[in-house]
């Protein structure tokens, strides 16, 4: 029964010492994330009425309000794209990014009690939240697309792969940002107030309710660095290939964004994990 492995405490590895000696590390992390996703969903569901449907209803209502406002007052500005899909891509993608990044700020506090179990590390709470948010907004996007499909009665996704890829890459970018933000918020608590404010302007800079084509040529370079805008434009193009894509918008850029963000976030996290675990 007793294992011969031993562990020096100062290297906070997740290998031995808590009754899981026979389980490979990646499997332990998988279990931890699975458990955290379970607990995340349970808390969400327990906070609202009507179970899981209730969790979906709130963002759906927000979406419909936006759809109504922009649909009515701004008229159809989506060009060849259905205005519903145009806005849905913008709002869902922006909210996905924003929620993952901002919820990561509180991921540690919300799971404080669960760090009692040594396999649970701060990084797992952020990953779990990113997974839950992605799943939630993917479902919402599916519901909206299905709704539009029922109304329009025609094929409305020309490149499914491009849609999924831009969604996932944006989620990964947000995960990297979320990790950095969590560490920063832990080291400098005032960050927790500042970060949400800092993210607010992104709403206007990400093309949620305009297309990059719709703004003057000379301003476009200042906006197209933004991975959220890139992902949104790519998604719109994925719905309907005749939606015009600026030259500066490319999947390659988004891939680089996701990788850089994730690498940076993980780097920041790994260098500060000891700090996060010390109370």
């Amino acid at each position: 029964m007793p294992s011969v492995e031993s562990e020096a405490e100062n290297s906070a590895r997740r290998t031995t010492g808590y009754g899981l000696q026979t389980v490979p590390p990646w499997r332990i992390q998988w279990r931890v994330i699975d458990a955290l996703v379970y607990r995340e969903l349970k808390t969400r569901v327990s906070q609202v009425k009507f179970g899981f449907l209730g969790v979906l209803v709130q963002p759906l209502i927000v979406m419909s309000v936006f759809l109504l406002i922009f649909g009515l007052f701004r008229g159809a500005r989506g060009g060849p794209l259905d205005i519903g899909l145009f806005l849905a891509a913008g709002i869902v993608f922006y909210t996905l990014f924003n929620d993952i990044a901002i919820r990561s700020l509180n991921a540690m506090d919300a799971n404080e009690a669960l760090f009692f179990y040594r396999p649970v590390k701060p990084v797992d709470t952020v990953i779990a939240r990113a997974v839950v948010e992605s799943g939630l907004y993917a479902l919402i996007l599916i519901i909206i697309v299905a709704g539009v499909w029922i109304i329009r009665e025609q094929i409305i996704i020309s490149s499914f792969l491009q849609l999924v890829a831009s969604f996932m890459l944006l989620a990964v970018t947000a995960l990297g940002v979320g990790l950095s933000v969590m560490v920063a918020g832990h080291l400098f608590p005032f960050f927790k107030q500042v970060v949400p404010l800092f993210f607010r302007p992104l709403w206007f800079m990400s093309g949620v309710f305009f297309s990059l084509q719709g703004i003057p040529q000379q301003f476009r370079p200042y906006l197209s660095w933004n991975p959220i805008l890139q992902a949104i434009e790519l998604a719109r193009n994925a719905f309907n290939q005749s939606y015009p894509l600026e030259q500066s918008i490319s999947m390659g850029y988004l891939v680089v964004c996701a990788l850089v963000s994730l690498a940076f976030g993980l780097g920041v996290y790994v260098n500060n994990e000891k700090n996060l675990l010390t109370r």
Binding site: E9, N10, T278
Partner: peptide, 14 residues
């Protein structure tokens, strides 16, 4: 579940 300022803890077993 908490880390010391200094020093080591070696454990055999769970």
């Amino acid at each position: 579940i908490d880390l010391p300022d200094r020093g080591t803890i070696r454990r055999n077993g769970s």
